[in-house]
Amino acid sequence: MSKKYQKCFITVGTTRFDLLVETIMSPSVLESLKKIGCKVITFQIGNSDFQPGIYDKEGVQINVYRFKDSILDDIVSADLVISHAGAGSCLEVLEARKPLLVVVNEELMDNHQIELAEQLQIDGHLYYCTCDTIESTLEMLDFSMLTPFPKPDPTLFIKYLDDVFRVKPKAK
């Protein structure tokens, strides 16, 4: 695969995802990130069990922080985003038209967020995997195969509402 994903942004959302942090920091996963061109990682870790700061591992610079008001800047400046399965984060990344790999947190099996990630993978907008398969996923998949996410279009809905709910024209 071509080495075009220099800047990588990883986000775990508002809670914590210890296993993802651990997995990303492992030499083998960093190695496979390097293979696709990764030189700098910006890593939003939330409340995960790790110390924020700037690290240099396996020749990759990793900037770790816990929270920001908005992660949009980090998404926009990244070449590849790796995200937890939260709908908010996923949609934000897709709207910014960035290649996206969703890592499903298997400890949260009862939540329905996987449903959305699954469907979006079927539709070809993102890839998803688990912590165990990040390495192989990164090595096998081609992010340039993803199709852009179409923009939402509420006009039909608004038109329907305007037909159903009317205001009487004022009598003059």
Binding site: A87, F165, R166, V167, K168
Partner: peptide
């Protein structure tokens, strides 16, 4: 049916705010 509504003036609207992502 499509239970429609015709109001005399503007439509008084309530928005139920859920939480987190639902609000957005």
């Amino acid at each position: 049916t499509d239970s429609g509504l015709e109001s005399e003036s503007t439509l008084r609207t309530i928005l139920c705010i859920g939480s987190g992502g639902h609000t957005t």
